[in-house]
Simulated scan of single mutants.
Amino acid sequence: MQQPSVCLPLGIVIRRVPGKTRWVRHVWKAVDLLPGAGPAAWKVLREEGEAVEYHAATVTLELWRTDTEAYLSALSARVPSIGVIMSNDPDRPQVLLATASPYETQDYLDSGEELVELVPMPEGLVALIRDFVEEHHTEEAFVKRRRDRERTDRKVDGVGDARIPQLTDVYRSPAGRKAGRLH
């Protein structure tokens, strides 16, 4: 397996605010990133009334040479963001992953099993990813797929798919139905 080109510790700041209903006690939201942060386990950073911000975890942000197209897409967004993927635990979600790839973030959004937050990148992180992309990105030439030269549209034999053995015409009426009788 190929190794990532760049690994950066990335602290994830999560804000907890009271829920609006009796069924949801707290609402958790990833709100900030701390590039180069040390290890943390729910260290309180700030409290304002009932809102509390935690340095919840430090995960490794991995940049891969093969994903530079995705990073370009992230950098060209109106607000370049890191996707933070968290477990769907209402009491205290665990940070599972941070990714700079919007394609990977979309995969987690599609599954619907985890909480996914987009957190704006700090300027230093934008510069790091931009430099990484400039160093490793190579444009891939578009290669149009060519069709086979065999003309399959001229062959009409009524047998259907040759891989499925059939003794008679596939357009026959269903067996067991008699003319004029409907079940």
Rank of each mutant, 00 (worst) to 15 (best):
P9W: 05
R130W: 06
R145Q: 09
R15C: 09
V133G: 10
L118K: 07
D169F: 15
V159W: 12
V95Q: 07
V116A: 04
A179N: 04
A77K: 13
A77N: 06
I129T: 01
A162E: 15
K29W: 00
L118C: 11
V143Y: 04
M121E: 02
L72S: 13
K155C: 05
P122S: 03
I14Q: 01
M121S: 02
D157N: 13
V31R: 11
D161Q: 11
K29A: 04
T168P: 01
V59I: 14
M121L: 11
I85V: 15
V6S: 08
G11H: 01
V95H: 01
H26Q: 03
K29N: 01
E62Y: 12
A98M: 12
L75N: 12
V116T: 04
K43R: 14
E123Q: 02
S101I: 10
T105S: 06
A141D: 02
A175M: 00
P120R: 06
V133E: 05
W42L: 03
S73H: 14
Y171H: 08
E69K: 14
T60G: 05
V133M: 12
A70R: 12
R22Y: 02
L8T: 13
G176N: 10
L125W: 05
I85W: 03
V27L: 06
H183D: 05
D89S: 10
R25A: 11
E62W: 10
E62K: 15
S101M: 06
